[in-house]
Amino acid sequence: MENIFSLGELPLHPLFVHLPVIAVPVAALMTLVLALVPQWAPRWVVPAFIVSTLGTLGAGLAKMSGEALAEAKNLSEHAAPLAEHAQYGDLAVVASILLTGLLLIWAVAVHKPQLHSLLTSPKLLLALRVLLTLAALAALVTVVLAGHEGAVLVWIKEA
C-alpha cells in the first residue's frame, strides 16, 4: 500500500476526512447565519471563507486519499461497497468548492470599495444570499452523507 497517501501501512484517508467533516459544516453554518444577517458580513465573511477553504482543501485530500486507498485494496469506487460513499464525496468536493467561491465573491465585494456598490443593490445582495444558502446547504448535506456512508463502510460492512 505504498503511495503518497499512506505512512507505511497506515492509510491517511481516515485522518484526512476529519478536516472536511468539521470545517465544511462550520463554514456552512457560518454562511447560513451571514445570509440571514448580512450586516455581519464585513466582520465574519473572511473567517467563513478561510474555514470553507480549509474544508475544501480537506475534502480534496480526502477524495484523493480515498481513491488511493480503494486502489490499494483493489476496490472500485464505481461499484459496491464504495459507490455511494465515493459519489457523495465527489459531490461534497464540488459543493464545498462552490461555497468557497461564493464566499470569496462576497468577501471581495464587502472589502473592496470599488465592488462594495454591488452589495447596495437589494436584488444582487438577495441573489448572492440565496446562492450562498443553497451552496451552504448542499455542502453540509453532501459532507454529512459522505461521512455517514464512510462510517457505514468502516463500522458496519467491515464488522
Rank of each mutant, 00 (worst) to 15 (best):
I4G: 00
S6Q: 03
L7R: 06
G8Y: 09
L10G: 06
L12S: 01
P14G: 02
F16C: 05
H18I: 11
V21M: 13
V24N: 04
V26G: 01
V26K: 10
A27W: 07
A28I: 06
A28C: 09
A28T: 06
M30T: 03
T31V: 06
L32F: 15
L34M: 09
L34N: 00
V37G: 04
P38Y: 00
P38E: 01
Q39S: 15
A41G: 05
W44S: 00
V45R: 01
V46G: 01
T53R: 14
T53H: 13
T53I: 11
L54H: 10
A59Q: 02
G66V: 00
E67D: 03
A68H: 01
L69T: 07
E71C: 02
L75N: 10
H78A: 11
H78Q: 13
P81D: 01
E84W: 14
H85W: 00
A86N: 08
Q87Y: 09
Y88P: 14
Y88L: 03
Y88G: 05
A92T: 03
V94N: 04
A95D: 07
L98R: 07
L99G: 05
L99R: 04
L102R: 02
L104F: 06
L104M: 05
I105A: 08
I105S: 08
V108W: 11
A109E: 12
A109V: 06
V110Q: 03
H111A: 00
K112L: 09
Q114P: 11
Q114S: 10
L115F: 11
H116Q: 11
L118I: 01
L119T: 00
L119G: 03
L119E: 02
L119A: 02
P122S: 10
L124C: 06
L126T: 14
A127T: 12
A127K: 12
V130F: 13
L132F: 13
T133P: 10
L134W: 15
A135S: 11
A136Q: 08
A138H: 11
T142F: 05
V144K: 09
L145C: 08
G147R: 03
G150W: 00
V154N: 06
V154K: 07
W155D: 14
E158A: 12
A159Q: 14
